[in-house]
Design a protein around this nucleic acid. Structure first.
Lengths: 259, 259
DNA sequence: CGTCACGTTGCTCATAGCGCAACGATAAGC
DNA sequence: GCTTATCGTTGCGCTATGAGCAACGTGACG
């Protein structure tokens, strides 16, 4: 295939490439006419028309009315449904969790919100000899863990009160005042991650970051945790960087992406 | 474009058509290799390879490992997200769905009528740990679901016959007689909501209520569904109250009920 | 009533993309 | 461990294919 003129990568089919670019164009701008799409591709409008006509036959685009503009169609939902059917958080997170655990040497967990508690779905042990107990399947209080704080951030503020029960104190560091917790959650939301030092158990430190779905909802939380002496404030900062990157990677795999 | 040999409709681009057929093939079978895809299309495997390569560059498919099979990719999720973002029904319903899911703890769906089936546009999972099947993008039979019954109520009686195909039995509870279905639809219309217990799947219970536009047309349906053991008759009544209120709220947001 | 811009459609030509065959790698079988 | 089969992948040459052109129908606007 010749590739002298434009940026069509080797081994790709030009017309298919253009058709898919049209889909992306429509995803960005919502609606567009044939002429506009043709201009975006740099092709003749008849070319663009035949491409959208083909997309339309497969239900991937639809026109607003007869002789009208085009927009993305419900056929995409059908395809996406087939995608999510074989896509779950644990499966997508696992390779990323492994890498994060290897890079940091600490334990990585993935948790979701369930029945007013954090439910731990997956755990990858760190390389260190000193390992925590296995939390998978356990329900952990929300207000005393990094994961819990992140998951709480995904809730609407008015749902917060009934989700939280009484804020039991597990250590001296546990946040037990609702006002203090709200302030903490605001901080978590702002910085994009949560940290908990000695709040559930003395000597246990954890950091957590949100995992988002295609709609931007917080559907899970990923954490790195270890003994406090191995995770001092200075090291937390570097670990958080890796953690946020990993969580973002998983979010992308689940379809999250800003445009 | 000549169309002497095969069933390529007039005005469509062959290679694009083939590429999209590959997507549909992957949606059906989950995973497939180049050779398999080529066989499905009736083309040479090199042709199929270039098509999937192009799809891969746009993130619509991905290979399981190097030199492995292909499956649908996350790019589809982003496109689907952009699709629903443009649908004002989903846009308006989403916050309400969230609240309803949180209040009931069960899964909330929004569906519309499309191609003689219920097309699920959006889903918000309940707080319960066990995640139900993700229905988004799926086409579900109309006569065996609460959503389907509600959507059927929005049709004129004479359009009912051609919209309904044969009433397949999915369980012992499925309504298979047209007369029984008509009676059921009258009941749904009268009470303003529909219930389906074990009609699509044994152990699955759902309730649904209509979403109306400014003209009072039924444009979508909102449902709450969960395991039958968690939704006994007694609880259904309270859930239906919340559901109808939520659906009405969405209808108002869409301009229904001038006040 | 004219003009303009839109989406749509025959027509023709060259080029894009198809089939072919060969390659490297992997896995299975004797 | 060597053969064999099958997979995904890649150069190559020919031709069906799809791109561009220009014209058409339609609706909006002044």
């Amino acid at each position: 295939m010749s590739n002298v003129t434009a940026g069509v990568p080797t081994g790709s089919v030009q017309s298919v490439d253009r058709a898919l670019t049209i889909l992306e164009q429509l995803a960005r701008h919502g609606e567009a006419g044939v002429t506009e799409l043709a201009a975006g591709l740099g092709v003749h409008k008849s070319t663009a028309f035949r491409l959208v006509a083909t997309l339309e036959q497969h239900g991937l685009v639809e026109q607003t009315e007869d002789r009208g503009k085009y927009r993305l169609g419900v056929g995409l939902l059908r395809l996406a449904g087939a995608t999510t059917a074989r896509l779950d958080v644990v499966q997508e997170a696992r390779p990323v969790s492994r890498k994060l655990a290897a890079d940091t040497g600490e334990t990585v967990n993935v948790a979701v919100l369930a029945d007013r508690a954090a439910l731990y779905l997956d755990q990858v042990a760190g390389s260190s000899a000193l390992q925590p107990h296995n939390w998978v399947g356990q329900h952990i209080p929300l207000h005393a863990t990094a994961n819990g704080k992140v998951l709480l951030c995904g809730l609407e503020p008015d749902r917060l009160d009934d989700t939280l029960g009484s804020l039991a104190a597990y250590t001296d560091m546990t946040i037990t005042k609702k006002e203090a917790l709200r302030a903490e959650l605001d901080r978590v939301r702002a910085q994009g991650y949560a940290v908990a030092v000695d709040e559930l158990e003395v000597g246990l430190t954890a950091a957590a970051a949100p995992i988002l779905n295609a709609h931007g909802d917080v559907i899970a939380s990923m954490s790195v945790s270890g003994p406090t002496f191995r995770l001092p404030a200075a090291r937390i900062q570097t670990v958080v960087g890796q953690l946020v990157e990993a969580a973002t990677e998983v979010s992308h795999r689940l379809g999250w992406g800003h445009r």
